[in-house]
């Protein structure tokens, strides 16, 4: 375990020196910070606009960071040949790969925390103003405080999963291809209910479609499970059982992804 954390720590420190990462982070915080300025676009739904832009930005930029960081973590080491001196030490490939991933997780978590904090501040400032105009929504807004924290927590696991996919994709493909692959995976993962509908015999799916689309539905990650926006807007309570199930599913999928990454990287020449 020790080498994993050593590699992770080095990765974390190194990642903060990546200019594009800092750029994305600053841009994201600017957008989140100014989300209230966009709110006038939707009169009567200002708070919703703030939430949509804020949470949407955290997710979107978290995803961007995950993809661009994840696809660079291992290839950079290989291209700069820093990996040679590390793997010549008593560090197995699995330890190296998981260490890089863990370092990426740390970096991502720090970035997400900053973005989340920025959004929370904006929300805390904006919510009372909204309440003054629409007092009947008091219950909904009260529930928002915990729901938004939960939504950000789930987004963490969503981007961790994307990071895992990006890291593993980069051990399989060239950089450009792995970026495209990860994006497509993310998009298709968000459309996974499409495959479920296509495999639905009630909608006239053939036997083959049932099997193929059903398998696709099972294989693809279901990124929409990390989305509890409806609960935020409706002011309903999001039970912890649902949170744990969601995180459990995300972590289980991540384990599969990292297992595949291990199987590939263990045979990879560097």
């Amino acid at each position: 375990m020790r080498p994993i954390f050593r590699v992770a720590r080095a990765t974390f420190h190194e990642a903060w020196r990546r200019r594009f990462l800092n750029g994305i982070l600053i841009f994201a915080i600017l957008i989140i910070g100014s989300s209230w300025a966009f709110a006038y676009l939707q009169p009567g739904a200002e708070l919703q606009m703030v939430i949509d832009i804020g949470l949407g930005s955290i997710r979107f930029f978290g995803m961007l960071i995950a993809v661009f960081l994840g696809t660079r973590l291992v290839p950079d080491e290989i291209e700069l040949r820093t990996i040679h001196t590390i793997l010549a030490k008593p560090v197995s490939r699995a330890q190296f790969l998981f260490g890089k991933y863990l370092g990426g997780v740390g970096t991502l978590a720090a970035n997400m925390l900053l973005m989340g904090a920025a959004f929370y501040v904006v929300f805390a400032i904006k919510a009372p103003q909204f309440l003054a105009e629409k007092p009947e929504d008091a219950m909904i807004v009260a529930a928002m405080y915990s729901n938004i924290a939960k939504a950000i927590l789930l987004t963490f696991f969503e981007v961790f999963l994307i990071l895992g996919i990006a890291v593993v994709a980069a051990t399989l493909f060239s950089w450009v291809l792995s970026v495209i692959f990860t994006f497509v995976f993310y998009f298709v993962g968000h459309m996974s209910d499409f495959f479920q509908q296509l495999s639905d015999p009630e909608r006239g799916a053939s036997k083959i479609a049932q099997i193929v689309m059903g398998a696709l539905y099972r294989i693809l990650p279901h990124f929409e499970i990390f989305d509890i926006r409806e609960a935020i807007l409706m002011g309903t309570y999001t039970p912890w059982s649902v949170m744990f199930k969601t995180i459990g599913e995300g972590v289980a999928y991540l384990v599969v992804v990292l297992l595949i990454g291990y199987l590939v990287f263990n045979e990879r020449e560097v």
Binding site: E14, R81, T82, T85, A88, P90, V91
Partner: peptide
């Protein structure tokens, strides 16, 4: 991994973490 405890390696034109 066992023998890597006992070896040292200097690659050609070595590269290290720049920071």
């Amino acid at each position: 991994n066992t023998y890597k405890q006992r070896i040292g390696f200097l690659p050609e034109g070595p590269y290290f973490y720049e920071h």
